[in-house]
Amino acid sequence: MKIAIPVDEKSLQSNVCVSFGRTPYFLIYDIDTKKSVFLDNSAAASTGGAGIKAAQTIADNKANILLTPRLGENAADVLKAAEIKIYKTTTASAKDNIDAFIAGKLPLLNEFHAGFHGHRGN
């Protein structure tokens, strides 16, 4: 089972990034092999629709679980379609949240904020 987390730095000790769509990296952690992979988030530079593109990246990398502090509606729609379960992070560090998730201590995230659109941001 693979867990995806938006992170500020390429390290297991890194803080979780507060923005899902515009996080610089994603940590993909494999619970079974305990291996970590860091992905660059190509959506970070998007003017609009960053959440959608980031969610696509997570899905393409076969994650089953996402741990994030918050999430936009559009990204949530993509992740739901991909049957990825979304949990809310409760502490700062990525590692602590993985441990909390494995211990069954993270709540499901079920409130999603409206998108920022960014339509006319040209």
Binding site: G48, G49, I52, K53, Q56, V78, H119
Partner: peptide, 25 residues
């Protein structure tokens, strides 16, 4: 189409294309 869209208005998940209407230009 997903790769072309500069606004990220399209996603392709589980053999299905999703269109985000309010993101589309």
């Amino acid at each position: 189409c997903v790769d072309f869209c500069k606004f990220n208005a399209l996603a392709y998940i589980k053999d299905k294309l999703i269109v985000f209407e309010e993101v589309c230009h």
